[in-house]
Design a protein around this nucleic acid. Structure first.
Length: 119
DNA sequence: AACTTGACGAGGG
DNA sequence: CCCCTCGCCAAGT
């Protein structure tokens, strides 16, 4: 499958990311699992790097609760700064609490999640 | 066609 | 907590 030429494939990722509320985050792997077999965490990251301005890419972080933009063209720590401005708190080691901020689309909430954490 | 490079993730030490 | 190894998969050389 050629993702670069498959508009529909990338749109599925964008549609989902656009739904993440301000102050909440999702992980690359979580998105991949939600979209299906053809998606992997690495692929989601690749697709996101070519997203437009209408996609809140900063709300997607890795499974450790950290931002992974250190080797890109954008300034280091930019993603974390934007998230902090949206209300997401990070520890000194650059990690945020997935317990607090991880978001799930309607109908995909895990059974053990706290009701107060649902959007 | 072979090899390298990531906006990744899980498991060990 | 940090670091490494693997498995992963699409792109770029």
């Amino acid at each position: 499958m050629n993702i670069a030429n498959d508009k529909n494939y990338r749109e599925r990722v964008y549609e989902l990311v656009r739904q993440i509320p301000k102050g909440r985050v999702m992980t690359y792997g979580q998105i991949a699992r939600l979209l299906g077999e053809a998606y992997t965490a690495r692929t989601v990251g690749y697709v996101l790097h070519g997203s437009g301005d209408d996609v809140p890419w900063q709300r997607v972080i890795n499974a450790q609760g950290k931002c992974s933009t250190g080797r890109l063209t954008i300034p280091i720590n930019l993603q974390q700064e934007i998230l902090e401005s949206e209300g997401v708190e990070f520890s000194a080691s650059g990690k945020c609490s997935l317990e607090k901020y991880l978001w799930y689309p309607k109908g995909f909430e895990p059974d053990d999640i706290q009701p107060t954490l649902l959007s």
